[in-house]
Write a protein that binds this DNA or RNA. Structure first.
Length: 519
RNA sequence: CGGGCUGUGGCGCAGCUUGGUUAGCGCGUCGGUCUGGGGGACCGAAGGUCGUGGGUUCGAAUCCCGCCAGCCCGACCA
């Protein structure tokens, strides 16, 4: 619909700003909440004594509670009746649908095709790959009874589908001509969780899981990286406006059964990290377990090399916590299900008619538009509601605007309001949407840099990661350092090269570890 | 699984210490009037087996015991 922004995807040099430890001393409150943002956005910042109580719990007061408030008041999701499950409400689901559509298009662009594999997996399948079953068994939901009697072999509800898909791959792949086999499925999966959080960690969630088989290790490695960069990083940076750090997981943090796990990590509004998506090289582990073999062009039987990769509804949580402020959600225009809302200020025939005309013009220009002529609800209430829902641009039209031939354009991201002529408003909105998209990315990147500190020791990293992220040489950490970080509820989120690029393997020298608290 | 806590209209809470007629409050919901440029005001209404089972008592939301559910904090995960 509109051209992609100029910003390049690759982080390049200078992706982390080295700075003094003094910056670390800033409290979370100071970093997250500059001043009186809670009063609303702009306009009146009345005296605190007169101010109404904030609609949402301020982030600086209680970030988890703020998150809960946003989920409720923006009508994104409820808790389900079974602990750890969630009900995704229509507005929340429309956000997910946007993610699906735009990720799916990129997946197709990478050559993969969608298919569907069963929810139920024979328990024995999981057991075929030792590390895999060990990693997942604690969180498996297992069906032992069905059809009124006990099953001969229990079936597990899929926690991920490497095993069933591996079984199909072994049937479908005979020759080198069948490779690469590039599959994807959109599905729900179940991982029984002890500490659930809506969107971030629930016992059931929605995701996309890609599974591919290749003739050579380098083909598999290349494809896993193609997905990582061209699908995930590109989507997160250019659509979600979240400047993710992309790197390799340490062996301790690897996916169960993988030989290499690569990740996109985003910083949330409270300085914690969130794993937004992963792409795995599975080596020949699953090929061996499921006998995925092919005849090469010399007639020799060979084991295939497989990959898997996924992003989930967790990204919705990342979007909320990555961009949200004390007035609620802030959606980047390219993702927003509603990009612009046209609000009629008064119950006035001419005003409402003009609103309709404007909304039609916007739709015709390809802007996802909502018309709000619910004048029985107070203006202030409607404005607040649209802000909580994070709609990027709000057009307010009342008798005063109409008389002046103007409409008031309010930006959700920075709270600014300007009058624009009604003639040509669609073009103005389109321009503003592009501006918001790039400003949100810039703001998020600056915020992350400001809270990322380069240090030299594990102890310094512990201090720095209390409020943000720390980077330090990986050879100063090692398995022992990783354990030490764990005792402070911190982890190495990923390993990157000094220039910010993704290592070929974690065995490279001079790698940098990114340390943070995480969700 | 170990430690701390909570169950009262849709949501958030008060009441319990010291038992006493009709269980309150805020938000939300519904109706109405005035309003309307940043969660408007007023009037009226609906909505509750006080988690559950037992016990004490003339009388239990309140005291005692059991059970259940949930929340927060410590080991795994997209």
């Amino acid at each position: 619909m509109w051209s992609s922004l100029a910003g390049s995807v690759s982080p390049g040099a200078g992706w982390v700003r080295p700075c003094r430890m003094t910056l670390v001393a800033r409290t979370v409150e100071e970093a997250a909440c500059p001043a009186f943002e809670w009063v609303g956005c702009n306009g009146w910042v009345g005296s605190p004594s007169m101010a109404k109580p904030p609609v949402l719990t301020p982030q600086a007061e209680d970030f988890p509670r703020w998150y809960q408030d946003v989920l409720n008041k923006a009508e994104l999701a409820d808790n389900g009746p079974v602990r750890g499950t969630m009900v995704i409400r229509p507005y929340g689901y429309s956000i997910w649908e946007q993610m699906q559509a735009q990720v799916d298009a990129r997946i197709k662009g990478a050559g993969a095709s969608n298919a569907y594999f069963p929810l139920f997996i024979p328990e024995s399948y999981l057991k075929r790959e030792a590390e895999h079953v060990e990693g997942f068994s604690p969180e498996l939901a297992v069906v032992t009874h069905a059809g009124g009697k006990q099953l001969e072999e229990p079936v597990v509800v899929r926690p991920t589908s490497e095993t069933v898909i591996g079984e199909s791959m072994s049937k479908w792949i005979q020759s080198w001509r069948d490779l690469p086999l590039l599959l994807n499925q959109w599905a729900n999966v179940v991982r029984w969780e002890l500490r659930p959080r809506v969107f971030l960690r629930t016992s059931e969630f929605l995701w996309q899981e890609g599974h591919t088989a290749h003739a050579t290790e380098s083909d598999a490695a290349g494809y896993a990286r193609q997905i990582l960069h061209d699908v995930y990083e590109d989507f997160m940076v250019n659509v979600l406006a979240l400047p993710v750090v992309v790197g390799c997981k340490t062996p301790a943090e690897r996916f169960a059964g993988a030989t290499n796990t690569m990740t996109c990590e985003a910083m949330m509004g409270d300085g914690k990290a969130l794993q937004m998506g992963t792409s795995h090289e599975l080596g020949q582990n699953f090929a061996k377990a499921f006998n995925i073999t092919y005849l090469d062009d010399t007639g020799t039987q060979q084991l295939a090399w497989t990959t898997s990769w996924g992003v989930s509804t967790r990204m919705v949580g990342g979007l909320i916590m990555g961009h949200g402020d004390d007035a609620g959600l802030r959606l980047p225009p390219r993702l927003a299900p509603i990009q612009t809302v046209v609000v009629a200020v008064r119950d006035d025939e001419a005003v409402i008619e003009q609103c309709r005309v404007i909304a039609q013009a916007l739709e015709a220009a390809g802007v996802r538009t909502r018309l709000d002529v619910d004048t029985s609800t107070s203006m202030g209430r409607r404005v607040t509601d649209w802000e909580i829902k994070g709609v990027p641009v709000r057009l307010e039209l009342g008798p005063r605007d109409l008389a002046a031939g103007e409409v008031t354009l309010a930006r959700r991201d920075d709270g600014s309001r300007t009058a624009v002529p009604i003639d040509g408003v669609a073009a103005a909105v389109q321009g503003t949407l592009e501006l918001i998209q790039s400003d949100m990315l810039t703001r998020a990147r600056d915020a992350r840099l400001a809270r990322t500190v380069s240090v030299e020791t594990v102890d310094e990293a512990v201090e720095a990661a209390a409020v943000g992220w720390a980077t330090l040489p990986w050879d100063r950490v090692g398995p022992e350092g990783e354990a030490a970080l764990g005792s402070h509820a911190m982890t190495v989120r990923c390993l990157v090269r000094p220039d910010g690029s993704v290592p070929d393997s974690v065995g490279e020298t001079d790698l940098i570890a990114v340390v943070a608290r995480s969700y």
